[in-house]
Write a protein that binds this DNA or RNA. Structure first.
Lengths: 233, 233
DNA sequence: CTGTTATGTTGATATATCTCAATCTTTTGT
DNA sequence: ACAAAAGATTGAGATATATCAACATAACAG
């Protein structure tokens, strides 16, 4: 198992320019000695909504889908795709110490488990670390605000445009990408049915806005048009 | 202008059992000497999305609606009704120092303006205060998660049930209440049109679930039924 | 390689909700 | 008190999207 970089620098596991850069050697040692590395296979559940929040996770490699679950209606809402160097844990921290989101590995994924108690201790000692955490949280809130507006006020074309732009810009960093997400996942992300997703993707392909082969390769051909569709809803 | 209570206690302006109880005398003095009390008339804008976030506000008296604005579509999403002793500021804190929400007084409202720089200083000195702030933020995130699920997956009857239950339980603390919200506000809160709100309220009245006089007085007659409607969507 | 299961696709139909326009009611300002 | 403005209500019609069922294709296990 790789050790963390010393001297207030980032994790050796790839965590660059994150809040962990703010830690002292002593604090890094403390986290380092208590952390556990765990590997998940594709499709495995990393943690589940309602379960105890004992650790904050850092993704070392792989990809994870994070979503809200509804027991009654079995309708999920996919919130984000988490990638390496991102922390996942959720808002139960300092509240009820429960998970409010579910995380499932989209491919084989390595994670570091950091004890919540270590997290708290360091946060109490190191105010810059706490500030960075609040900043991170607030950024997420701004993101969810946008999600609330988009999912409640836009119609299907706009929502699919949003989902495709999110994947290209935020997840894959390219207008041409292969995704691990199923049509149902795209539907859960856009708050609609998989049938509607399929129909709109077909429309987008027919009008030359995107290309799509073998179900999982996407290419954005006319990004301006897609952005316009996203804006007009 | 009233002074804050000393000895680590709450604001004299009514802020009870809040995070301000965690401050020392010195810290309270610091906030106290820099704060400004501002009164807003009914309908006045307290701050607007996009504007600079220079102060965190504490509501001393009155009621405020907090909502997300969309410049293009002029469709708003009402997030919450803020009441006395609540802090309002929003997630721009430590991110871009801008407001991401708009606040409008629903009635004559008194507020305390606390400088963001004071807030930061005290948070750096007092880790318990920072923890309390993170807790507060995380509670909001959990609330927004629920909102995301409710607004995207439920249909109109369920969403109106949610809105009525929110007003009764969280805002007015009674199953019988007069609200300052218009039909359009209820629509903005439930992510639907005012016409649909009106029709469903009429249905609820006709089936004896609620009573509603002179547009603004509501009374929940059959709460169990309303809860059931909220659950089944 | 082959049957089985999961995922994707298409079409026909139902329906919830919005839109628009007319009308009625309440609130507000003078 | 009255006119004007704002908000609430109702109805008819349009439409976007879900639902359901059948079928096609891809992925997977033995």
């Amino acid at each position: 198992m790789a050790e963390f970089a010393k001297s207030g620098n980032c994790f050796s596991c790839g965590l660059k320019s994150s809040m962990f850069c703010l830690l002292t050697d002593i604090q890094l040692d403390e986290i380092n000695s208590n952390r556990q590395q765990v590997t998940f296979k594709k499709g495995e559940t990393i943690f589940k909504s309602g379960g105890p929040l004992t650790h904050i996770l850092c993704i070392t490699s792989g990809m994870v889908k994070i979503f809200l679950e509804d027991k009654n209606n079995k309708k999920n809402l996919l919130l984000k795709i988490a990638k390496p160097t991102q922390l996942i844990g959720g808002p139960g921290f300092l509240v009820d110490e429960l998970h409010h989101i579910t995380a499932i590995a989209l491919e084989d994924t390595k994670t570091c488990f950091i004890k919540v108690s270590d997290f708290k201790e360091i946060m109490a000692e190191n105010s810059k670390f706490a500030f960075e955490f609040i900043k991170y949280r607030n950024e997420r809130v701004i993101f969810y605000f946008q999600r609330l507006m988009d999912l409640t006020h836009k119609q299907t074309h706009g929502k699919i445009a949003d989902t495709l732009l999110y994947l290209a810009n935020e997840v894959y960093g390219s207008d041409s990408f292969d995704t691990l997400l199923s049509r149902q996942d795209l539907a859960d992300m856009s708050a609609m049915t998989k049938e509607s997703v399929i129909r709109i993707i077909k429309e987008f392909v027919e009008s030359g806005i995107i290309a799509c082969n073998n179900h999982h390769h996407f290419e954005i051909m006319d990004k301006n048009k897609l952005i316009k569709i996203s804006k007009t809803g």
